[in-house]
Each structure stands twice: as C-alpha cells, then as structure tokens.
C-alpha cells in the first residue's frame, strides 16, 4: 500500500521555503554529545533506511513520506537534537560493527543493528540509555508517523486512526462500505 501525498500533506505544509538547514547540533547543557554535527541529509537518509525495516513490506512510497515527516519534525529544536543524537548512535553502531553507515547496509543487517542496540525491547525514553533514545526518536517516531496516517491505519483496518483528522463519517460506516 502506497504512502501518498495525502499521508504527507499536513507535513508538507510545515516545510519552509528553500528547506533551510536546521540546527541539529547537540546541546551540551544536558551533558549530551555536542560534536557530532549531523546534517539534515544524514538524518533523512538514516530515518528512511530505518523505516524500510520498521514498516511492513506492503508499504511503498517510504522515501517521500519519511523525508516529509522528518523535515516537519526537525523544526522543533529539542526534538531535532534528540533525533540527531539517536541517529548518530545508530550510525556509530553500524560503523563500528559493520564498517559502514546504517543506510548503506542491507535491510537484514539494519534490522540486526537496531535489535543489537536493544531498540526493540527498550522502553521509549526521551532522556535515557542509548537504546531507549533510539526506541523513542527512531523506532517509535517512525511507527507513530505510519500508524497515525490514513494509509497506515488502512493496513490495520481503520481508515481514520487516532491522531489523524479523518472526519466524522468513517465511524458511521460498516466494514463493507
């Protein structure tokens, strides 16, 4: 099932003209790393690569959908720093164990990287262990995007999932409508 412009429409509206770079350098006030100055392109690439693992095989159109969503989310400075930290951690792990950045690995290896980091079993926490932050800023971030979209909802059988302003008609319709 293809993620469409409808899924991304609201996020597109949040994009600034020209796609100016967003400061995603780490804030060192809370003790987090501040030297891994990832740019937006690296975040987009890594998040798309993660979504290709996290989303079911039936989903297509991931690149545009995730790129649009991520860009809209990076407008929040605190959130952007958290995503940058988590993405850096994922790439650090990929480089140190598999000698390449995360997005360059095949899908099975990307799946392994995330599981080896315990991002599948960790609690999602904004300020926690590396695994918890990856769970929050990468895994749950991307799953939230998909399953609160109409296409993600339709995969499950609900065309107006929680979080999506899908109107007040669908709740009245039967399954065959």
């Amino acid at each position: 099932m293809k993620l469409t412009r409808r899924d991304a429409a609201a996020a597109l509206a949040a994009l600034g003209a020209g796609g100016a770079a967003v400061a995603v350098g780490h804030n060192s006030e809370d003790g987090r790393r501040s030297d891994d100055d990832l740019d937006e392109a690296a975040i987009r690439e890594t998040m798309v690569a993660a979504a290709e693992v996290l989303y079911p095989d039936a989903v297509t159109g991931i690149d545009d959908f995730v790129t649009t969503f991520v860009d809209s989310r990076l407008t929040g400075e605190t959130h952007a720093a958290g995503v940058a930290d988590a993405v850096a951690a994922v790439n650090d792990r990929a480089e140190s164990w598999y000698d390449d950045r995360f997005a360059a690995l095949d899908a099975d290896t990307r799946d392994s990287v995330l599981r080896e980091m315990a991002a599948d079993t960790a609690e999602p926490r904004r300020e926690g262990s590396t695994a918890e932050e990856v769970r929050y800023y990468v895994v749950n971030e991307l799953l939230l995007a998909l399953y609160s979209s109409p296409t993600g909802g339709e995969l499950v059988g609900i065309e107006n999932p929680q979080g999506y302003a899908g109107g007040v008609d669908s709740y009245q319709r039967g399954p065959q409508a």
Binding site: D7, A8, A10, A11, L12, A13, A14, F65, F69, S72, R73, T75, G76, E77, T78, H79, G82, R126, A145, L146, S148, S149, G152, G163, Y164, A165
Partner: peptide, 10 residues
C-alpha cells in the same frame, strides 16, 4: 500523518 510539532518542543 499530520505536520506534527514535536512533544518535546512545547
């Protein structure tokens, strides 16, 4: 999906 301002940036 909506253009969702992040929870951390309230």
């Amino acid at each position: 999906m909506s253009g969702r301002p992040p929870a951390e940036d309230i």
